[in-house]
Write a protein that binds this DNA or RNA. Structure first.
Lengths: 244, 244
DNA sequence: TTGGTAAAGTTGTCAAGACAAATTTGATTT
DNA sequence: AAATCAAATTTGTCTTGACAACTTTACCAA
């Protein structure tokens, strides 16, 4: 079935075969494809080579791997989440009617920031908390949020589990952002963060730094967002609401 | 120097050693570190293992690889490019005082769109062109742009090499966008596009779909942006200019 | 001196085996 | 019938060698 003499690599040939079988309906949506070992045996290649073939299709968002269980044809398209419009993370999910569950990974505490030099609070004290958002039990987003210690005094006593932070800022502190900046990068996670998001250390993660300015102080809120783009599409509406 | 008995993988141990030598100044910024072969020989490991070690640091943006030449300690920080603010791609570079050069990869032509189902012109005709932007001779961004065939009639006769598209839309067609949406994903390139951007097919690419609405027609402009995030940080200013 | 060419050196790609970790399944026991 | 535990299955990780493609360097000839 495969031709080792061909200039086309074996793993690429096998990826084509699998894709053809998916398109033909032999491997329907949501079904499990043969294991890497059986693919390797069937086609007389090594397992790493068979794995490379499925890797190609995983990157193309055609297959989804589940450790200990199998490799599956992706069931449905990614959902869209309007994340970057600054309406506030949680409320943007709500608006779309997506069932959302958030949990606090690290409770709000006042601490001296010494990790990241790009953090505007670097070397100083700030409130910090970390939050995980899940959609349909699928972890999708981690937010590390840093807040100005005087402007947001007492925020460590407010439960942030299910409330929109932007709403709290508006309703409890009577502030609204006057401007800001977002930086987009591709990064990787490791350790506890990777476990929380359910990704491997080799999975590329859309990483966003967000700086929010208020009339009282520039960079009063700084956050880092870690977004899984394999299950969701992060979108942004433009010009929709006029700022007044 | 390395301990094969340790539970810490060899490649990780070596990555730590290299990082220590960079921090200590033994491998200064911009300098070449030992080749993968000599690392492997020095530490008594296979070349793929040595390569894996540098791979870790490449992903951390500490090292930069140059095929045929060597692996280098990254010289300077990434520059920021305010791309997503919709001021227009080219003009946003200009505003930052960054020297920019664009070249047309595919000249403007009217064609039937049959590639991508998410393209709003799918199955219909549209103007299409493709543009590469380079900063300091470093390719950084590819834009595939699709335009409404009637609204932008005759745009194939305008030279788009160095002119901002948003300015042309405003000054020649007297239109300005009324709204829009952007989708953010991580993807991969292959073939000619990967060559143009100077990336490998394994390099994750920040991929943005942009839909622009005008009062005359929704989705009158559709574009796909492919951004190298290893050399540049793509940023976005928020609320800076009031839309009037 | 200059130009071209060959050689050496470097990173990129393809292919593989062995073991670890997670899940599922089935058998056994209560 | 239910719970528990062990075994089998599956994907994840670590390690390796061999060859290909690209750059740089050095040498030789004009």
């Amino acid at each position: 079935m495969l031709n080792p003499e061909s200039p086309i690599p074996l793993y690429h040939q096998l990826a084509d075969v699998i894709l053809t079988r998916i398109r033909s309906g032999e491997y329907p949506r949501g079904s499990r494809i043969p294991s890497e070992n059986s693919l390797a045996a069937d086609y007389g290649i090594g397992r790493p080579t068979a794995r490379q073939a499925t890797e190609v299709l995983v990157r193309k968002r055609v297959l989804v791997r589940k450790r200990g269980s199998g490799t599956f044809v992706r069931a449905r398209k990614e959902k869209e989440v309007d994340l970057f419009s600054l309406a506030g993370t949680i409320s943007s999910f709500r608006d779309k009617g997506i069932s959302l569950r958030t949990c606090i990974l690290e409770k709000t505490r006042l601490e001296r920031i010494s990790q990241n030099r790009e953090n505007p609070f670097y070397g100083e004290k700030a409130y910090f908390f970390s939050r995980l958002s899940c959609v349909e039990d699928m972890p999708v987003l981690i937010e590390d949020i840093y807040l100005h210690p005087e402007l947001f005094s007492g925020i460590d006593r407010i439960d942030l589990e299910m409330r929109s932070l932007s709403r709290i800022v508006k309703e409890e502190y009577f502030m609204r952002p006057a401007g800001g900046k977002q930086n987009f990068r591709i990064g990787y996670l490791s350790g506890e963060k990777a476990r929380s998001l359910g990704v491997l250390s080799t999975t590329p993660i859309l990483t966003v730094q967000r700086f929010l300015h208020f009339s009282q102080a520039r960079n009063a809120v700084y956050s880092e967002l870690f977004c899984r783009t394999d299950q969701f599409v992060f979108s942004q509406s433009l010009f929709q609401k006029r700022e007044t």
